[in-house]
Amino acid sequence: MTQLNEKLTLKQIEAIIEEMSIDGALNKLYAFKEEYGTKVDKLIVKYEKKKLQWEKEFKRFEDMRRYEKEAYSEGVKYIAGIDEAGRGPLAGPVVAAAVILPENVFINGLNDSKKLSEKQREKLFSEITEKAVAYEVGIVDEKIIDELNILNATKVAMEIAVESLKVKPDLLLIDSVKLDSLKIPQKSIIKGDSLSISIAAASIIAKVTRDRLLEEMDSIYPEYGFKKHKGYGTKEHIEAIRKFGICPIHRVSFTKNFTL
């Protein structure tokens, strides 16, 4: 046992391994165990649990890549995942996103935006936008929604997102709908945001983008509480509509039952 190692505390040992990969940290800890014995057992248990969690997450991620892997095996190069946020709210736009991820990407925690917290979505938004080959959003406002209906407005937003991409996709993976106006091979996947990493990435980009827009609207129309409910039909929101009437970003076709 060296004099240096005699002076290392458990906290110091953890500081040494915290920037390492999980496997690297475990290898280092087992090396320390030869000199420290049971003193490092708690850290070994901690990192063995981390390894199991990582392996479970990697398997989940690989399961969500099955549509992408199938397409790559058929010679497809660029896959765009497409999803939207904001079909159900009483106010604000519908926002769609198109995201092309690199073939061998791994993004820890990537999932359907509805299964994630706001903090998780914000973190993943940064990682997706950093790692993506290309991404774009399409925004269709409440006036067009009232004119076209929400399904057709959603399709327009998706088309805008796809057509804005700086890299032309060879295949579109779309959550639930089909975009007949786009002459690009495509596959509509029910609940695709839980089954495809590309669609899941698009769901996060669309959701975070729309939430940020509604937070901006909250400062303009503070009486409606948009920052809290993002335009959805909560009890608080409906009561505000009944009290103050609708504002310019409300969807008339969605709110007519709440106004006199």
Rank of each mutant, 00 (worst) to 15 (best):
D175P: 03
L148G: 08
D180E: 15
K183D: 14
I174T: 06
Y135C: 02
I205V: 15
K143C: 12
P185G: 03
I199G: 14
E130S: 15
K168E: 04
I145C: 12
T129H: 13
Q186A: 02
P169Q: 04
N149F: 00
N149R: 14
K168I: 00
V208Q: 05
E142C: 09
Q186N: 10
I160E: 04
V162K: 00
E147L: 15
A132K: 04
V137H: 00
T209G: 12
L172K: 00
A161C: 10
K207C: 05
S194Q: 13
S164Q: 04
A202T: 01
I184P: 00
L148W: 06
L214G: 08
T154G: 15
I174W: 10
E130T: 13
S176I: 07
E136R: 14
S219D: 15
I145M: 10
K131Y: 14
I199M: 06
N149E: 09
I160S: 08
E215N: 08
D193P: 14
D193G: 15
S196D: 09
D211Y: 02
V133F: 00
K131G: 11
S194R: 14
I197V: 15
L171T: 10
A157M: 11
S188Y: 13
S196R: 02
L172G: 01
I160A: 06
I139K: 11
K207A: 02
I174G: 12
R212M: 03
S181R: 13
E130W: 14
A202P: 12
K187L: 09
I145T: 09
D211W: 06
D170Q: 14
I184M: 06
T129D: 01
I220Q: 07
N152W: 01
D211V: 00
I199W: 11
L148K: 14
V133L: 00
E159A: 07
V167W: 01
L171P: 04
D141Q: 08
Q186G: 10
I205T: 08
K183Y: 10
V208Y: 01
P185R: 01
D180S: 14
S181M: 04
K191M: 11
K207G: 03
E147T: 07
L214T: 03
I190H: 05
V167A: 01
K168N: 03
S196M: 03
E147C: 01
I205S: 09
I145N: 13
G192T: 14
P169T: 05
